[in-house]
Each structure stands twice: as structure tokens, then as C-alpha cells.
């Protein structure tokens, strides 16, 4: 990698200070664990002059029980998430997704907010400076052409966070702060399918927490992920499922995906599949709903066709597992 470029670090003590600093300098980058940002700085794909360190914001470093559900601060680490008794008891899918992020050493510092805002990734983007220079860079960074789809002007870098789909199937909301106050929106509303501008957050806005309602009695959640390496690897595809079983039927079903598009996707229309067991007929209809939404591109070493097949397999086996457990 390249030598560490110069930048300065500012350390706000409160969320209000942090968003004011960002408002004053929209090019500054937030950092907490740094497991995403630091390698990207070292590869020269981002070059902030100023970094806003969020580790001093105690107000967003805790998990609180609120209205029967949970409010998870954005600076809570993935290790803290995995070890929390409330999550282990009732939010299995979140724990499984957090446990699938990288390896133990990353999870000690990597945060909920960092994983939800993780930069989109691509074979042509997450490379060294000399690699990208010899390839005339790419649309996402300093170049004019997307090497994944050279005829278009759209970036197809893939959203690769594991937590987002696990939170989405539980109906999580994003709590966003800004100098003018803040807003709470469904987590699904924080993203758009554009590898360049995947986050729908203003320059002066910051994700401060996610609110997760308590799951209904019997609503089981899980997460499954395909990756090249068993650890320290981003998803070729990841699937979160929330499911409630009553007798021999699935009565509630939510499915969300990551790694296939430039945003995490909530699969719509799954309500119409309930009332039946997860047999081949039901799963084939679900395959259809998934197939229509996903758009894996040649942004990883594994070809798009493989990732399409993997999504279907992961979804089917996860639904069957949760149904058996339910």
C-alpha cells in the first residue's frame, strides 16, 4: 500500500459538535473503528484532509431498551453487539450478521454505524493506487468509465454490509442527526441503488442510532452469507430472513439481501407467499421475487450468474432452517 497520506483528526465530544464539524467541512470523513476508512485512505481511493473521530461520543456507544425494542448506538462495536444478552435472546439474525463481519479483531473496533454506512465495493475500486492508475481509474474514483459496465454512466459497486438486511427484516429505523435537528426514517430509506451515492444522507447528517422494534412472539430471524474466504471477507451475497411459523405454515415472512446491488434490498411481496409451508412451490415463487430485484454485476471475482444461484440457495436453506427451528 501507499504511505499514509496526511490528514488531521478532530475529536468531537458530542453528536451536536460532530455534525457541526461536518457541516462546516462536508469533505471531512467520519471515522469510528476505521476498518473500512483506513484501508481506503491507504489505497488512495479516498483522501480526506480532515477526519472526524466519533469514538468520544459516549451518547451513541450504548444499547438501550426503548419502548420494548432496542436503540443501538451507531458507535456500538460489532463485538459488543454479539455479546449483548438481549440481542442473543431475541434478535438472533442481528447477532449472526454481526458475527459474519470480518474476523474477531475487526469486530473489536468495527461499529454498527460503520457497517451500515460501509463504502460500496468493487473489483476495480478496492485496489492499490498503481493498480487503478494502470487501469485508468474508474467511475467511482477519479475515472470516467465503469469497467463493470463500460457503456453506461452508472456505478455498480456493491453494497457489502452484513448488518443492514438483518436489521431491515426486523423493521429497523435509522435515527439521523444534523445541525438543524434530526429525523427518524425506515432503514430502507437510507439507501439508493447507486454505487457512487448509495447513502441518502445529507453532507451535514450523521447516522446516530438504529431503532429495532421488538420482534413479534415466535418471529425468528437469521442471516446467511456466501464469501470466498471463511473469514475477513465481504459477502458475494448475504441474506437475512425473518419468519414466524404457526403449525405447518409460514405466517410471516421477510427477506432482505446484501452484496447483490449498490444498496441492501428488502424483498417486497413476500406476504403473498405466507399461509403455506416452505415447500418447493413456495420457494420457487420466492426465487422469482428475488430474481426480479437483484442485479449482481461483475464487481467481484465470482461471476454474476454464480451469485444469482448462491442467493437462491442461501435464501432457501435459511428459510428451511428457521422453519425447522420455529
Amino acid at each position: 500500500m501507499e504511505y499514509m497520506p496526511e490528514f488531521s483528526v478532530v475529536r468531537p465530544a458530542t453528536v451536536a459538535e460532530a455534525v457541526a464539524m461536518r457541516a462546516a467541512d462536508p469533505e471531512a470523513r467520519f471515522v469510528a473503528g476505521g476498518t473500512d476508512l483506513v484501508p481506503n485512505i491507504r489505497r488512495g481511493i479516498v483522501a480526506p484532509a480532515k477526519v472526524i473521530d466519533l469514538n468520544g461520543l459516549e451518547e451513541i456507544r450504548k444499547i438501550e431498551s426503548v419502548d420494548g425494542g432496542l436503540r443501538i448506538g451507531a458507535a456500538v462495536t460489532l463485538a459488543e453487539l454479539i455479546e449483548d444478552g438481549r440481542l442473543r435472546a431475541d434478535y438472533t439474525g442481528i447477532v449472526e450478521a454481526a458475527g459474519a463481519v470480518a474476523a474477531t479483531s475487526h469486530r473489536q473496533v468495527g461499529t454498527v454505524g460503520g457497517n451500515l454506512c460501509l463504502d460500496t465495493r468493487c473489483l476495480f475500486y478496492n485496489q492499490s493506487e498503481w493498480w487503478r492508475r494502470s487501469n485508468d481509474y474508474c467511475l467511482k474514483s477519479r475515472g470516467d468509465v465503469c469497467h463493470v459496465a463500460p457503456k453506461g454512466d452508472h456505478c455498480f459497486a456493491a453494497f457489502s454490509g452484513d448488518l443492514a438486511p438483518a436489521l431491515m427484516v426486523l423493521g429497523a429505523a435509522a435515527e439521523i442527526a444534523s445541525p438543524s435537528g434530526g429525523r427518524i426514517i425506515p432503514l430502507t430509506g437510507m439507501y439508493q441503488d447507486d454505487g457512487l451515492a448509495y447513502l441518502l444522507l445529507g453532507a451535514d447528517e450523521m447516522l446516530v442510532a438504529v431503532r429495532v422494534p421488538a420482534p413479534a412472539d415466535g418471529f425468528k430471524t437469521g442471516y446467511a452469507k456466501s464469501r470466498v474466504r471463511g473469514a475477513i471477507d465481504f459477502p458475494l451475497a448475504g441474506v437475512a430472513v425473518g419468519l414466524r411459523r404457526d403449525a405447518d405454515a409460514v405466517v410471516d415472512l421477510s427477506v432482505a439481501l446484501t452484496g447483490t446491488n449498490s444498496m441492501p434490498l428488502m424483498i417486497e411481496g413476500t406476504d403473498a407467499l405466507t399461509g403455506a409451508p416452505p415447500d418447493d412451490a413456495m420457494l420457487a415463487r420466492l426465487d422469482g421475487l428475488v430474481r426480479d430485484r437483484i442485479q449482481p454485476m461483475s464487481s467481484t471475482f465470482s461471476p454474476p450468474g454464480y451469485r444469482r444461484r448462491v442467493v437462491a440457495k442461501l435464501t432457501r436453506s435459511l428459510i428451511r432452517r428457521l422453519y425447522r427451528e420455529g
Binding site: 476505521g34 491507504r42 473521530d53 463485538a79 473496533v109
Partner: peptide, 13 residues
């Protein structure tokens, strides 16, 4: 007591 990757950690942290 927790493992940390020193090549992607900033010293001041």
C-alpha cells in the same frame, strides 16, 4: 486484552 489489527488502527486510538 482484545486482538487488534495494528496495520489498520490509528495510533492515537
Amino acid at each position: 486484552d482484545r486482538p487488534r489489527l495494528s496495520c489498520i488502527s490509528l495510533a492515537y486510538t
